[in-house]
Design a protein around this nucleic acid. Sequence first.
RNA 1: GCCCUUGUGGCGGAAUCGGUAGACGCGUUGGACUUAAAAUCCAAUGGGGCUAAUUACCUCGUACCAGUUCAAGUCUGGUCAAGGGCACCA
Length: 823
Amino acid sequence: MIDKLYFPQKIEKAQRKFWEELKISRTLDNNNNPKFYALSMFPYPSGKLHMGHVRNYTITDVIARFKKMQGYNVLHPMGWDSFGLPAENAAIQKGANPKEWTLNNIAYMKEQLKNLGLMYDWEREVTTCLPDYYKWTQYLFEQFYKKGLAYKSEAAVNWCNKCGTVLANEQVIEGRCWRCDEIVEKKYLSQWFLKITDYAEELLDSIDKLDGWGENVKLMQKNWIGKSKGTIVEFKVKDKSDLSVKVYTTRPDTIYGVTYVVVAPEYKDIEKLTTDENKEAVENYRKNARRLNEIERLSTTREKTGVKLGSFVINPFNGEEIPLYAADYALVEYGTGAVMAVPAHDERDFDFAKKYSLPIKVVIQNRDNPNDCQLEAYTGDGILINSGEFNGLNNNEAKEKITQKAINEGFGEAKIQYRLRDWLISRQRYWGAPIPVIYCEDCGIQLVPEEQLPVLLPEDVDFSVVGRSPITTSKTFIDTTCPKCGKKAKRETDTMDTFMCSSWYYLRYCDPKNDKKPFDKELVDKYMNVDQYVGGIEHAILHLLYSRFVTKALRDMGFLSCDEPFKNLLTQGMVLKDGSKMSKSKGNTVDPDEIFENFGADTARLFILSDSPPQRDFDWSDAGVEGCSKFLNRVWKLYYQNQNRIKLDYKIDFNNLSKDNDKLVRLTNIAIKKITSDIENEFQFNTVISKYREFVNSIYDYLNINDVDDNVLSYALISLLKLMAPVCVHMTDQLYQDLGGNGSIHELEWPKYDDKLTQMNDLTLVVMINGKLRDKIIVSSDANEEELKDKAFESSKIKEFINGKTIVKTIVVPKKLVNIVIK
RNA sequence: GCCCUUGUGGCGGAAUCGGUAGACGCGUUGGACUUAAAAUCCAAUGGGGCUAAUUACCUCGUACCAGUUCAAGUCUGGUCAAGGGCACCA
């Protein structure tokens, strides 16, 4: 029996209990159906779910359930990205223990996820902050090290004072810390890096193969990797034949226009290149440059500054003597750290030349405005002039010829340069996976032997220390012995960037309990790659690029076989309220718990999918939630009122139906087709839901006819129930069981449609004159072109329009329209 | 500055291939039911015009300007606006 009223709070709990008993969400490794790996980006356990989580996980859950009904062996796991700074900050502010704080949050949020009705296989849960996970993060670090993909190096790194740690390049947004917005400083420190640059080329090239990724994300990754094709040219230093300055340029065609050369203030040979009388000025300039923070230094609006070094270099192409400058618009970490300046054809060089009254030499003819580069640089294409043997060439042609000459004469080479830098993974923080390294005075850097992993986080630490990592306060952690010589040695106190933990979690889900290795190759090869990944656009570079790198590196080490981790990527939009992002500081958040309590999870799921396509931002409205709740009541009523007519084993003779019954059969087939294709193409859940509503309206209309057929009605209602099952997971299962169904609706097969029944018998023919709609006629759907034409001309309205005019031609689009062109 | 994306009613948004613009919903208005309210149900709802009024009909309309086409929200060229990414990367 179906209850008279829809009471979600009661049925949802009961249904979830039922599913747990049935174990419908388990993924068994011995299931040999085609697999489907559906994955949401796992959350940081900050305390409570927010609506962004609800949206993300609902989308993935609907996909997973849909695929399950289609017969796939679906892997849909969940876990916790649980290392990171907020836990440590809570420890400092509230005196909490980071581990306890984190695990409490996980327990609470796990309950919320369950309340949302998500079909996760909790047996596969991973928690990155627990030793049975981070042991393998450390193990993988060691594999990277052994492969030469992890190294320690002194470098200028990004330092956030507020977070008290270094940051990766990817974590610096417009010169500020991605987490706390503090202005990032440059510091010279010895730090651990992963050699992502070794994979720059493959990471770039294989972007084009990611057909299931949005163009915007691919473009962001391409720009971040930043490939440029250029030439290195060696300029000998005048009067110092053993010394030279190599510059990197993408414009070798302008080599004859070089009027000075700039080196970065941190350039390695800068002292040798400085003459005695300029020493003091150069030293001052360098000091000043060091004081500037990233934002000031990288600001394009700031006036360019520089200082003369005093020495000169020789342009190998024409023998000209060229003055050397140091200027902070040259970056030490890109290219060679030195730039040849061509003020006539580069805006930055132009600005600098104007300021220091350096010559501007035009070498590329600007057709629109010949030989004038006095007011601004000309950066376009043109014909070379003042360029010796290369005069008259088109500049693009000249690029190759000039590079070739430099190669032939031994003062240059072609060079591909990437903007991508190596991934800095050291963090001077406590709540992360310790880097499993020991420093021995005699033996140097030693890995912690594999059998001693994990290197556990110490508990005897003082979180109140300022300016250094709390780990350094542990009395038990640091002192150890060298695994090679046995003498006293010290442990590395830095932990790993949490992005290291999250760059391989999707592999662990394939074999989460393995205590011999991070995962079994066969199992990973069975489930990888992820068929559908869903998450926020904010990870377009960070997490997604790191994961791609880690997958490729592990492939090359023989751990797995796939080239790319995520086959299809859906980046869902933000959840807004009143037009702006939900945030505590704005006070416009909506608590998922309240929605579950007041309306039920099915309403929340329905609403969050209903108004916008998943890729777009979604504006939360209370009225919208109520609308969805009303709709579910309307659906419930449909089943309640007709429960005595509904048969699960309906039988229909499709060839022998009255007009109205035939119509409902066709409407059912149309609904199945439309909903199936809208989920499969781009996951357009908003149109899926509008189709639910349309179909429900049609069924209500049908119930007003005289010859309602119980079999036809059952066919429509049972189909609707299955179509709605992936979204309204609790309600549909309750109704299914109340109607006498066995087991769970989620284990049934997705409804099929008959293509012959996906159009109506009669259709509306549109008749146009000169492209303007003039009449609509009901015609039979099997009418041929001639018949359609005849019908169109029979219309009295059309006759009136044609009257007295000449018919130029008539266009007939079968099943759609007739357009008559008249003069 | 460079690159990308998006511009459709009061609002969220629909509209395979170029083929009825505004599906579905929210909101609003009117009505039914009710002592009343809520809930529910029914109807109307892009602008303008014509008509005493209904049915109907005409006309404009998918940011703007041009073009291609029998036919343009959809294709081409240009302009503007909003959002996002990158940014002394030589």
